[in-house]
Simulated assay, not measured.
Amino acid sequence: MKTTLMIYDGPAPADSDAPRTGGVPLAPAGFDWPLCGCGGPLQFFAHLPVEDGVLSVFLCQNDPGACEFWDASSSANRVFLFPREELRPVAVPEAGLALLPATSAIRTHVVTLDPEEADDDEDIELGAYDVARQGWNREPAERFGKQREVLGSLGGSPSYLEDDRLPACPSCTGTMEFAAHLEEGIARETAMNLGGQLGYVFVCRTCRKGSFLTD
């Protein structure tokens, strides 16, 4: 079993095309900044290049806790799957909380768990992502205490999420595919506000639409 962890890798340019949290979104020409049902702009959280495009994740932070950004069916979050070609920085709204306070680079780290060895490890009950995340502060020894460096993971399966919470695509009604976990981050200055919860990003690759929810 392989888990691709996303690890905090210091500051990044705001318009980088590499994996990052914060900065400005890169989108095709004609893209309009998404608005929440409250009327304010959604805050851009993450730019995540994947095999068939780029996932862009937005959540409402205009009045934290007032808009249900944790609900996959809410207008307080939005996920887009853009093609990689001809992406450009999007003009940032002048009002509202549209950007994170800092742009953070992400590097990926693949953790391989041997199922035969895991059979005798009670931690396997936690799920592949949870085991990989916990292992980040144990091996090697110098990583101890650095679990907050983990910003989530790409691909795999959603951790501790019941089947009845898997979102359906609003266009084709099919069950969306899990794409990524998101963690709040390493420090208040760079963190994504997820209400202290683990975030889940889903996508319908056929319709190129996504959704977001928290645990």
Results as ranks from 00 to 15, higher is better:
T4Y: 00
M6L: 08
I7K: 00
A12F: 03
P13L: 03
S16F: 04
S16P: 08
A18G: 01
T21H: 12
G22M: 09
G22K: 12
G23V: 13
D32R: 15
C36L: 09
C36P: 09
G37R: 09
G40A: 14
G40P: 00
G40T: 10
Q43N: 14
F44W: 07
F45L: 13
F45H: 08
P49L: 07
E51S: 14
V54Y: 04
L55A: 14
S56V: 10
V57S: 09
F58I: 10
L59D: 02
D63V: 08
D63R: 15
P64E: 11
S73D: 04
S74N: 01
S75E: 04
V79Q: 04
R84A: 07
E86V: 01
R88M: 10
A91V: 14
P93L: 04
P93I: 00
A95V: 04
A98T: 11
A102T: 07
T103E: 05
S104I: 07
R107K: 13
R107S: 11
T108P: 04
V110S: 11
L113H: 09
P115R: 05
P115N: 10
D120N: 10
E125L: 07
Y129E: 07
V131C: 06
A132M: 09
A132N: 09
G135F: 08
W136T: 07
R138G: 09
F144E: 13
L151R: 07
L151S: 06
L151K: 07
S153D: 03
L154D: 00
Y160E: 10
L161V: 12
A168L: 07
P170F: 02
P170K: 03
T173M: 09
T175E: 08
M176D: 06
A179R: 05
A179K: 04
H181F: 11
G185S: 12
I186W: 14
E189I: 13
T190R: 15
T190A: 15
T190V: 15
L194D: 08
G195V: 11
G195H: 13
G196Y: 12
G196F: 14
Q197I: 04
L198P: 02
G199Q: 05
V201S: 11
F202H: 09
V203F: 03
R205Y: 15
R208H: 14
T214P: 10
T214N: 08
T214A: 10
